[in-house]
């Protein structure tokens, strides 16, 4: 979706605030929110691509004005509501509706390290040979899906060179909508700054993005 989250190339967001000796969390609630995201129960089939999509659906004024872990709060709440795991009244009150059966399948504390070490493997076998070779010129297709995608706007329609081939990876565009992993070959494509930003950009500098095969066409 062409959302406010797709920020590459925008102006006007102000200076970067680099905090010296930054703490891991700035308030206890941030730590609790992180723990709920990593240790809380999510609907069946939920995955990180869906998590990213729920976050990018946060209304733009809230996306830009609320802090990072507040995004997580908003995304978890929307997920609970959409799946029927909680009601609006429960979210507002902080208490379960009377008569609700308590589940007993939450992640136990001793499973966290295992989840950290073994989670998040996205490489998958793809039977078809890669369509593109390292060194080949490719164009990022000009696609504008209203659902989730990971092809940023600033590379669409631009020509680059395949720099790396990562094998098959789960396709976020389908996975985020619980329509299957549909793995495809994944490539890193390098673009010149002039291709991306025009003749006044640096002639030397480059930017790369990781792009799935269906995002690309031969150039």
């Amino acid at each position: 979706m062409n959302g406010v989250h797709d920020m590459g190339g925008m102006h006007g967001h102000g200076p970067i605030e680099h905090e010296k000796d930054e703490p891991v969390f700035h308030a206890p609630w941030e730590a609790r929110m992180l723990g709920m995201r990593r240790g809380g129960t999510f609907p069946s089939g939920f995955n990180i691509d869906r998590w990213r999509h729920v976050r990018e659906l946060i209304p733009p004024h809230l996306y830009l004005s609320r802090s990072y872990y507040d995004h997580w709060y908003m995304a978890y709440v929307a997920t609970l509501l959409q799946s029927g795991m909680a009601t609006r009244e429960e979210i507002k009150s902080g208490h379960a509706a009377s008569g609700t059966a308590k589940r007993n399948d939450a992640m136990p504390p001793d499973q966290t390290w295992k989840a950290q070490k073994t989670g998040g493997i996205f490489a998958r076998q793809v039977e078809t040979p890669p369509r593109f070779a390292i060194g080949q010129c490719v164009r990022a297709r000009n696609i504008n899906p209203s659902g989730h995608t990971r092809v940023p706007r600033y590379v669409r329609g631009k020509v680059g060179v395949v720099q790396l081939h990562h094998g098959g990876h789960i396709l976020p565009d389908t996975n985020a909508h619980l329509q299957g992993e549909a793995p495809q070959h994944l490539y890193t494509v390098v673009f010149s700054m002039r291709e991306l930003w025009g003749p006044e950009a640096s002639a030397r500098d480059e930017a790369c993005a990781d792009l799935w095969e269906s995002y690309l066409e031969p150039a």
């Binding site: 308030a27 206890p28 609630w29 730590a31 609790r32 929110m33 992180l34 723990g35 709920m36 990593r38 240790g39 809380g40 129960t41 609320r66 802090s67 872990y69 507040d70 709060y73 978890y76 709440v77 795991m85 909680a86 429960e90 979210i91 507002k92 009150s93 902080g94 208490h95 379960a96 609700t100 308590k102 589940r103 007993n104 399948d105 939450a106 992640m107 136990p108 504390p109 001793d110 499973q111 966290t112 390290w113």
Partner: peptide
């Protein structure tokens, strides 16, 4: 957000959707 997150943790704990000790571990 501190109020909202606290309420969410209470709710999830009551529903058995999270174990507060697991939050501590993360």
């Amino acid at each position: 957000p501190a109020l909202r997150v606290k309420a969410l943790e209470s709710l999830l704990t009551e529903k058995g959707l999270v174990d507060p000790a697991t939050i501590d571990a993360w």
